[in-house]
């Protein structure tokens, strides 16, 4: 027991303090404040691996480490979609996961947010569309925010989650400063694309052309 306490005392609090400018963690500190301001309450996330290579999962795990401390922000990963506000979906959607993904989406109470994670979630990534893969997440369920990267670093994941939440929070709930920041600040736009309802997102390096039909659309 003494060992444990000593180790805890020795480690101190690792959650990133406000860092010097230009450090990659600047974003984290700012994001953390913003998430708190925007949310002011708990956000629950249900993660779904719809066919990823597991690289994206490793970075989502990292959000829970003491540096990013996502739980300290009131954001929790929950075991059931019925308890979730936001679905965090990785992978190109394998055909074998398509039905399970749609069911999970249906089981999530409205209003719900969907964040597609990684180059695969954004565009199908290196796996693309094939006899076994349906490609991007928005081909199967509606997506609010897509976070590119292979895999996206934890900071980008935090940015994406914030983008989704700020999109969902009614403007009246935001104080003037953060509302202005959310409207104008390009940090959320850089690397994180907000999708208009019904549109397929364009990942930075996705080929232009007809967006594929969304399987999740009502007929």
């Amino acid at each position: 027991m003494l060992h444990i306490l000593r180790q805890i005392a020795k480690c101190g609090i690792k959650t990133e303090p406000p860092p010097p400018p230009a450090d990659e963690m600047v974003t984290v500190a700012r994001l953390q404040k913003k998430i708190l301001r925007v949310l002011g309450r708990a956000l629950t996330i249900r993660q779904i691996d719809a066919g990823s290579c597991n690289g994206c999962e490793l970075e989502i795990h990292a959000l829970a480490n003491p540096y990013y401390n996502i739980e300290g922000l009131g954001i929790r990963f929950v075991a059931s979609p019925r308890h979730a506000d936001l679905l965090l979906v990785t992978g190109p959607v394998s055909k074998h996961m398509a039905i399970a993904l749609k069911r999970t989406y249906d089981a999530t109470p409205d209003p719900k947010l969907v964040v597609a994670v990684g180059d695969c979630g954004c565009s199908g990534g290196i796996f693309g569309e094939s006899y076994a893969s349906l490609g991007r997440v928005s081909n199967v369920i509606p997506v609010d925010v897509a976070i590119p990267g292979c895999p996206p670093a934890p900071v980008a994941l935090l940015q994406g989650i914030l983008a989704a939440v700020s999109v969902a929070a009614p403007a009246a709930e935001l104080d003037a400063e953060s509302a202005a920041a959310l409207r104008t600040e390009p940090t959320m736009g850089s690397g994180v694309a907000r999708l208009p309802e019904g549109a397929a997102e364009l990942a930075p390096d996705a080929p232009a052309g007809e967006p594929p039909a969304r399987v999740g659309d009502p007929p």
Partner: peptide, 11 residues
């Protein structure tokens, strides 16, 4: 298993 089958060998 095979839920994550995404056609890697064919790719």
């Amino acid at each position: 298993l095979s839920f994550a089958h995404k056609g890697i060998e064919k790719r």
